[in-house]
Amino acid sequence: MKISGNLIASFVLFGLLLLAPLAREAIYPVFLMKVMCFALFASAFNLLLGYTGLLSFGHAAFLGAAGYVTGYTIKALGFPTELGLMAGTVTAGLLGFIFGSLAIRRSGIYFAMITLALAQMVFFLALQMKFTGGEDGLQGIPRGKLLGFIDLRDDINLYYFVLAIFGGGFWLIYRTIHSPFGQVLKAIRENEPRAVSLGYDVSKYKLVAFVISAALSGLAGSTKSVVLQLASLTDVHWHMSGSVVLMTLLGGVGTVLGPVVGAATVIGLENKLGDLGNWLAGATGINALSTIGEAVTIVTGLIFVVCVLTFRRGIVGELAALVKRSGVNVKSE
């Protein structure tokens, strides 16, 4: 019998997330919400890198721009929360359409450079435009009420709302990957000329995948701006674009759950690096290790290097390979 390891693991994951607020003394809901936003972001990115074979180095633009639009529409225009989220998502989708139309004209390394450059343009625009608040960003975005009566200022209410968004987005990506459309994307990833010769309009498929990925990244960014009540330049900076690549690579490119694992690891690491450094310094007696907390970029970069050199399948990919060797038939895709 074929066990779909993914399905089981996903159910376990969402079951745990449903129960997580019970342990809110140990795990902050806001931290988990942040992780879920990034997990959605990385999953959306993985749809492009893992299943279509396109490396976008500009996904921060979608995350950040959507966050700004959501923040602005809710804070300055008084939109209800759900409408603000929609506005952000649609903006990211449109931006994705523009980026995608330009970038799919080239492939491989050029694709990565083009998306990076376009995202940098969005960064400069965000820096200069009035509505983004420039260096300060948009602060104190009100969380508002869902559908007018569920108060999202309550962390637990918001938690389940974010969980629903993450679940919905995750399900959408899962369905996309396992649809006939997803099969065509994988065909393009494996052998583009062949897909062309079979009569598929490859550019169109790539573009649609790009727009879906961008819109869902936008949804993640919008949600994040509501959760943290902040939209800032960090989210549009190229470090963020690199960060989502790292999450996906570390978790496992082209695996369903990899980006979720990767996002949780990277976000957890960023939050806990200071503690880890102090602990290491205490344990080993090397004081220099306590500065690890200040050097997040160094650690991020090192993980990147190690992943690329020795660990290209990522955590989930390696686990799946391990289980496969033990004889159980598991699909990680």
Partner: peptide, 11 residues
């Protein structure tokens, strides 16, 4: 590209 990106961050 990814490796050199990581190295750039480290440096």
């Amino acid at each position: 590209l990814l490796l050199t990106f990581g190295l750039a961050l480290v440096i």
